[in-house]
Design a protein around this nucleic acid. Structure first.
Lengths: 161, 161
DNA sequence: TTGGAAAGTCAATAATGCTGACTTATATTG
DNA sequence: CAATATAAGTCAGCATTATTGACTTTCCAA
């Protein structure tokens, strides 16, 4: 036996009730909706959508990323990503260079113009995150990160810093 | 002046750096993808998608909810929701009853069959959340909730318990 | 030199969202 | 009571993002 009473044990596990889990599910839904709303708003003025934002974000964060790595991160099909990427390359927001080690690969990077749009979108999103972090405090943020890391598929962690 | 040195102040605010915010943004993206993947997998075997899941979830959680309240929660247009809802009513997963107070309103509830599908989807999603909560512990979960509540649009909090 | 990997493309289809215009039923207000 | 407003539902058209399947080009590596 442990030093805990049955009552104490039960109390310790209250955060695992179905009701608490359902509330967490709803929090994920509402938070994600808010999380995407600011960039989406900006993108109203463009011919681009959320998929373009995601591509810009991960190219910015991973300079010279290959197409196949980007495919793995985004979890969409080659055809789906290609449509988005083609637009961005044609519009000169993204540069696609033949790989040096392996000439079959393409290394993606943002052009000046791409960096500018990415920055606008990112700034809007970071503003909301910054306010939320600030209001919640560092310990809450640590908990936030821990739970999200446990929700995501483990093999995707290699794409985090 | 506070009792903190400048170095201590700087350290306290490290969780607000752009890099930390960007990592949080990526965590949201990866976690949300995992969060939706299990129900999406189940829905492969149906003619329903994520939008149907969301409707089933919130009708289950808010018995006798009206269409306009559901519209507010989901944040989509009447036409968009109606397509989904019509299917669910025709297929007898959802019951739409004329309101008692106000006969213009419709009160939505799940049929037996609707409850069964909702349960399957919910169980898959709760399983992942439960594992994440358990691994992270109650304090982390509290932080997770606090941050998500600060990310979401404040007026949506009325739809949480 | 052959087999496979990386990238790109074409075509068809599906799910989910939007705007705009309109109807029906019912409640509320002047 | 008559006028107005609200709740729901519908039709049509279109955009975005995703899918599967089939195929080509280029190039690395065994």
């Amino acid at each position: 036996m442990t030093r805990h009473s049955n009552a104490a044990k039960a109390e310790n596990l209250l955060f695992l009730t179905d009701d608490q889990l359902l509330q967490g599910i709803e929090l994920m839904f509402f938070a994600y909706k808010g999380f995407t709303s600011d960039p989406d708003q900006i993108l109203q003025n463009y011919t681009y959508g959320r998929a373009h934002h995601r591509a810009l974000h991960f190219i910015q964060r991973n300079p010279d990323i290959t197409v196949s790595t980007l495919l793995d991160i985004l979890g969409v099909t080659k055809q789906s990503l290609n449509r988005v990427l083609r637009q961005l390359v044609i519009d000169k927001l993204v540069d696609s260079k033949i790989g040096k080690r392996d000439r079959r690969e393409r290394n993606l990077q943002l052009t000046q113009e791409g960096q500018e749009l990415e920055r606008r979108l990112s700034e809007a999103q970071r503003k909301r995150m910054r306010a939320a972090y600030k209001a919640a405090g560092p310990d809450a943020v640590q908990g936030f990160r821990t739970v999200l890391q446990n929700i995501m598929d483990p093999q995707m962690k290699i794409h985090l810093d």
